[in-house]
């Protein structure tokens, strides 16, 4: 049986190890020497083999992972953009901003503003549907509040208004 030409799966498996390591610690520095060591590949061959396997050179892959993490932090946390830049592995805010814009087409601040706005897409939903959709939560919140109030000092009949 002729073995068809193609990349050696064992090599790919070792390259995957380098990709996994970048995935789990994208904030760290990943010079080719370090990645090549993880994959047990010569430095000369690493970058090319990695690009053939995963579609992007290792450095660009790392940058996209960092940007991905930064986007998640912009969306899900209140951390400052400076904090996010350093937490995701950049040494300068300027580089972070420039590469972020290169990759995503907008600045970190714009992304944050847009993501936060997108997180509340309710303004496009008619209010009656919105109220219906939220009714169970609202009831829970009210009864919870009543329970708390009952356990506390005074009982209020104030209605919770969305």
């Amino acid at each position: 049986m002729n073995v068809p030409p193609g990349p050696d799966p064992n090599l790919l498996r070792r390259l995957l190890r380098a990709k996994d390591r970048m995935d789990v610690a994208s904030h760290e520095e990943w010079p080719v020497a370090r990645l090549a060591r993880v994959s047990r590949v010569s430095q000369a061959h690493f970058a090319r083999s990695f690009k053939d396997a995963f579609g992007a050179p290792p450095h660009r892959y790392l940058l996209t992972r960092r940007i991905e993490r930064a986007k998640a932090l912009l969306r899900d946390t209140e951390l400052s953009i400076t904090d996010i830049a350093f937490q995701t592995g950049w040494k300068s805010l300027g580089t972070f901003g420039r590469i972020f814009r290169d990759v995503t087409g907008e600045s970190p601040g714009q992304t944050r503003a847009r993501e936060k706005a997108d997180a509340h897409p309710f303004d496009r939903v008619p209010a009656c549907y919105l109220i219906a959709a939220h009714r169970p939560n609202l009831i829970n919140a009210v009864s919870e509040k009543r329970r708390q109030d009952a356990g506390g000092k005074k009982k209020t009949n104030k209605k919770e208004v969305p």
Partner: peptide, 10 residues
Amino acid sequence: QTLSEIVAKG
């Protein structure tokens, strides 16, 4: 061969 590559690439 293709399947083996896909598996090895995770």
